[in-house]
Amino acid sequence: MKKIIVALVLLIMLAPPLGGNVYNIKNFEENKSRAAIDAYDFLIIAPDNWLDSLQPFVDFKETHGVKTKLVGLSECLKMNGRDDAEKVKYYIKYAYDTWGIKYVLLVGGRKPGFKERWYMPVRYVHNSFGGGFWGEPCFLSDLYFADLYDGNGKFSSWDTNENGIFGEWCNGSVDKNIDLKPDVYVGRWPARSEEEVKIVVEKTIDYEEHAHGSTWARRIVVAAGDTYPEYPTYEGEVTTSEALQYLEGYNVTKLYTSDGTLKGWKDIVREVNKGCGILYLDGHGNPMSWTTHMPNSTEWIPDFKVTRMMYLKNNGMYPICVVGGCHNSQFNVSFSNTFKIYKGMDEWYKYLYKGENSPE
């Protein structure tokens, strides 16, 4: 009897606490030891019906020594969490703790239509910037999915006051102890269809196979002007020139409004079509266009619009593009916003003026 009691005590001491499965994966094979689970470098999460289109990318990564795990979104949503975004973040944490992943790719953007719905969950954070016409009460942040732990080593919910408002810093209410330090590298392909996924896979593989060692990839094009003409410095030209100090070994093409080499979007298209590895634009932008000012003038140069992308003929020479502009990478936009006049003239005008009716 004593042996039985001792055995029971040991079992109780060694057993995990109730609810101690922090990952809460349903039907997970708990008898697998951590040592028996393969390590991975790269985690890709995508809608289940897009997985086949991503498999060539997984195979390509594997052949280059990058151990890659492809997971359907439905598997992530088996986690416990307050909403789908938190469930995805818990799965990334699980993958980080279990497989040692370093890189994460989220595949999926906004679904077409008037109502905002997503192929891959997003997180809006509420770091308020003023009010009125330019007010932004909340905005998208994929840093949320990368910042897994707070400074104390605990899961970083980004909602420390537990009021359901994430990344909050407004109206006197603050989510404290968010260190904003990414624990993994997170990127997103905000694709809006499986066909877009196939295109991005094809172009990414093409880039990774051919860019290294090519002449065009060692060329950088910068374009800038007088970002804020009310101040004495040509800010965009200063920042791009400073950036070039860190990029040794590149052939540099500068397009500046101050010397007349940048008069409009055609100058940018001409240089990109020659092939470049890096394109750096520093000025003003929204989801529909990018532009900047002539020297000491409020005059805008002819802008580089989405509709002018058709003039790019750089097939097989895809640059890494860095943009200094307010909202060029905003991906919660939709052409359907063009028709939201029913929200009132003021709100409708905001959609149009801010370029948030960019085509899908």
Score class of each variant (00 low, 15 high):
residue 4 I to K: 07
residue 7 A to W: 02
residue 11 L to W: 05
residue 14 L to I: 04
residue 14 L to N: 00
residue 19 G to D: 01
residue 20 G to T: 02
residue 25 I to W: 04
residue 29 E to Y: 05
residue 34 R to F: 10
residue 39 A to G: 08
residue 41 D to W: 00
residue 44 I to C: 06
residue 46 A to L: 03
residue 56 P to L: 14
residue 57 F to R: 02
residue 58 V to H: 03
residue 72 G to I: 00
residue 73 L to I: 03
residue 74 S to M: 08
residue 76 C to A: 14
residue 77 L to G: 10
residue 78 K to M: 13
residue 80 N to W: 02
residue 101 I to T: 05
residue 105 L to R: 03
residue 109 G to L: 01
residue 114 F to L: 14
residue 115 K to W: 03
residue 122 V to Q: 00
residue 137 P to D: 02
residue 138 C to M: 08
residue 139 F to C: 06
residue 141 S to M: 11
residue 145 F to Q: 06
residue 159 D to K: 11
residue 160 T to P: 02
residue 165 I to N: 07
residue 166 F to Q: 08
residue 174 V to G: 03
residue 181 K to H: 04
residue 185 Y to N: 11
residue 186 V to Y: 00
residue 188 R to N: 07
residue 190 P to I: 08
residue 194 E to K: 15
residue 209 E to K: 15
residue 211 A to D: 08
residue 214 S to G: 10
residue 222 V to E: 03
residue 224 A to P: 04
residue 229 P to L: 11
residue 233 T to D: 13
residue 236 G to Q: 03
residue 237 E to W: 05
residue 238 V to A: 14
residue 239 T to P: 00
residue 244 L to Q: 03
residue 244 L to E: 01
residue 244 L to N: 00
residue 246 Y to R: 11
residue 248 E to T: 13
residue 251 N to S: 15
residue 256 Y to H: 10
residue 257 T to P: 02
residue 257 T to V: 11
residue 261 T to G: 13
residue 263 K to E: 10
residue 268 I to W: 05
residue 274 K to L: 12
residue 278 I to Y: 06
residue 288 M to S: 12
residue 288 M to K: 13
residue 288 M to C: 12
residue 291 T to W: 12
residue 294 M to L: 15
residue 297 S to C: 11
residue 298 T to A: 12
residue 302 P to E: 10
residue 303 D to C: 14
residue 306 V to M: 12
residue 307 T to E: 11
residue 308 R to E: 13
residue 310 M to I: 12
residue 311 Y to A: 14
residue 320 I to E: 13
residue 326 C to L: 09
residue 327 H to T: 07
residue 329 S to T: 09
residue 332 N to E: 09
residue 345 M to F: 10
residue 345 M to R: 10
residue 347 E to V: 10
residue 348 W to I: 05
residue 355 G to V: 05
residue 356 E to D: 05
residue 358 S to I: 01
residue 359 P to D: 13
